[in-house]
């Protein structure tokens, strides 16, 4: 048995207050219930406790100082709390606040919630669904994109908008709604997609429509022009003798159909555009030409 003064780290001349202070300092560090699983701490704490028992009792201290008794005190017989804390007896104290679990959000989460043996009944309720709207650009919806959105509770979420998403379509994100109670699943997040219009593309189903201005020369003589599509530019051949209103079809240049996984077409409607200023040369040519050619586009259209 070690010397109790040495165990508490105080000189023999220490006052009762010094002894108490020293004991408290050691006890805070070594108390077995604050150090579960640490056998050394428990052993040291027992020594410290026994030393303090002896030195905090003026009568025992005096007798020890006079050498009438030795340092062996009665060792603590009462069990520490930690003896029960992890067993069935401690179950009702052993809980997490709310529905925290050491294994959040995975398949173990339910296993460790509450105490063992079903001692604690938990209230289970599926979390509420939440709804959001998300505005995306025309091309983002046509080609698909992943957008990071911040939800009302500050949580961020990567939302994958699949290619071919339609205006007003609602995406369902399973389990991204309000959290469930008592281990029940979370609700879902519903995200309604709104598509911003594009300056020149429009969409009907899976087909893309675009009106393409062409010059008089391109319409009469034909030629190759650069045409934007939803996934980049392509060269489009204008046949000679094309007219305003002629529709050219580009197969497979439309939007992906989510059901059939086939892409629609791009429909290009030509619009013949005269120069802003009609120069004298053109005017003179048309005057000359019209004298010898009669052309009434209205009769063909049914105007009389």
């Amino acid at each position: 048995m070690r010397d109790p003064y040495e165990i508490l780290g105080v000189p023999k001349s220490a006052s009762a207050e010094d002894i108490k202070q020293s004991y408290r300092k050691l006890a805070k560090k070594l108390h077995p219930d604050l150090n579960p699983g640490n056998k050394k701490a428990e052993q040291s704490f027992k020594e410290v406790s026994a030393a303090y028992d002896l030195l905090s009792d003026p009568e025992k201290k005096a007798r020890f100082d006079r050498g009438e008794i030795d340092a062996s005190g009665a060792e603590r017989q009462q069990p520490f709390y930690k003896a029960y804390a992890e067993g069935d007896e401690g179950a009702r104290y052993r809980r997490f606040d709310g529905d925290e679990s050491p294994f959040a959000d995975d398949l173990f989460a339910d296993l460790f919630r509450g105490g063992p043996g079903g001692g604690r009944q938990t209230f289970r309720m599926r979390g509420a669904d939440v709804s959001y709207t998300l505005e995306v650009d025309f091309l983002e919806a046509a080609n698909g994109i992943t957008r990071r959105v911040t939800l009302a509770d500050g949580k961020t979420l990567d939302v994958t908008i699949p290619a071919g998403t339609e205006d007003g379509q609602t995406l369902r994100l399973k389990g991204q709604g309000q959290p469930g109670l008592g281990g029940a699943p979370a609700g879902d997040a519903f995200i309604e997609i709104h598509i911003r219009p594009h300056p020149f593309f429009t969409r009907t189903g899976n087909d893309i429509h675009v009106e393409l201005p062409v010059s008089l020369a391109e319409a009469v003589l034909g030629g190759s022009v650069n045409l934007p599509t939803i996934d980049g530019k392509v060269a489009l051949k204008i046949p000679a003798g094309s007219n305003s209103g002629t529709v050219l079809r580009l197969k497979g240049k439309g939007v992906l159909n989510q059901a059939t996984r086939q892409r629609g077409d791009q429909l290009v409607k030509l619009k013949v555009v005269l120069p802003d200023q009609i120069d004298p040369e053109l005017k003179e040519f048309v005057e000359r030409w019209s004298k010898t050619h009669s052309h009434d586009p209205r009769s063909k259209a049914g105007f009389s």
Binding site: P36, K82, E86, Y93, R94, D97, S101, P102, F112, P116
Partner: peptide
Amino acid sequence: QLLDQVYALRKALGD
């Protein structure tokens, strides 16, 4: 509260 959480964790870890 912290002690109860430590013991709950130790129990879960033990299991």
